[in-house]
C-alpha cells in the first residue's frame, strides 16, 4: 500500500485477494513497476550519487505473489567512453526464492565521480 500511495496506482490486483483477476491468478501480485523501481533503487544505492542514470528498463517475466520475497541483482556488462563521458552498462534482474528471474532489465549510467552532475 505504501507503493500504491507513492505511485498513485491503486489497482486492487496488488492488494485485494478477492479482486477477480487476483482470484484468477491465485493471489494478489507485486506491482511490476515496484520491481522496476526496486531495480532503480539497487542502481541508486550502488552508484552512491556519483553518476546519473540515463536509461533504465524492466521487463516483467513472472509474477511475484504475496508472502514471497524477491531479490534485486545486477552486474556491470560494459564500460565505454562517449563524448568524454564514462558510461556503465548494467544488467539487472529480480529473482524469487527459487532463483527464477521474475524481472529482467538493463540500465545505462553516466559516471561522474565528483557528484551527480
Amino acid at each position: 500500500m505504501l507503493y500504491a500511495s507513492g505511485s498513485g496506482d491503486f489497482n486492487p490486483l496488488h492488494y485485494d485477494p478477492d479482486f477477480a483477476q487476483a482470484r484468477q491468478i491465485g493471489d494478489y501480485i507485486v506491482f511490476g513497476r515496484l520491481k522496476y523501481a526496486a531495480l532503480g533503487q539497487l542502481v541508486s544505492d550502488w552508484l552512491g550519487h556519483q553518476g546519473f542514470i540515463r536509461r533504465i528498463s524492466a521487463s516483467y517475466r513472472g509474477m511475484d505473489r504475496r508472502g514471497q520475497s524477491f531479490t534485486c541483482r545486477g552486474r556491470v556488462t560494459g564500460l565505454r567512453q562517449e563524448r568524454g563521458q564514462h558510461i556503465a552498462e548494467l544488467e539487472l534482474w529480480t529473482e524469487g526464492s527459487d532463483g527464477q528471474r521474475t524481472t529482467e532489465g538493463t540500465a545505462e549510467v553516466v559516471l561522474t565521480p565528483a557528484g551527480p552532475g
Binding site: 506491482f31 511490476g32 513497476r33 522496476y36 546519473f52 542514470i53 540515463r54 536509461r55 533504465i56 528498463s57 524492466a58 521487463s59 516483467y60 551527480p116 552532475g117
Partner: peptide, 13 residues
C-alpha cells in the same frame, strides 16, 4: 490488464 515492461530515458536528473 498487466504491465509488460517499462523503460525510462532521462536527459538530465
Amino acid at each position: 490488464v498487466l504491465d509488460g515492461s517499462t523503460e525510462a530515458v532521462y536527459e538530465r536528473p
